[in-house]
Amino acid sequence: MCLAIPGRVVEWIERDGLFARARVEFGGVGRDVNMQCTPDADVDDFVLVHAGIAISRVDADEAARILEALAELQLDEMDEPQDGREAAPPTRR
């Protein structure tokens, strides 16, 4: 139930108030989403949508920074296995 899905803001329909809403696209599927809690989202920003309302604007810079760090993740010497298990690549069970 706490599932929330990222979608791209395509256009604002109503900017203010309790009925603020925007057209948001999820992998080609468009939906009207209430934007009361994400008033700062711009067109082309991604928002996380749960139960018909946007609950956060995805921070694109932060996402890129973390993905870059993950892409560079290497097993270093400190990570040598302590009990003779093979370190990398992990074998699939």
Partner: peptide
């Protein structure tokens, strides 16, 4: 896979 390797090693 890299994250799994890191967890197993750590």
């Amino acid at each position: 896979e890299r994250l799994l390797g890191k967890i197993r090693a750590r």
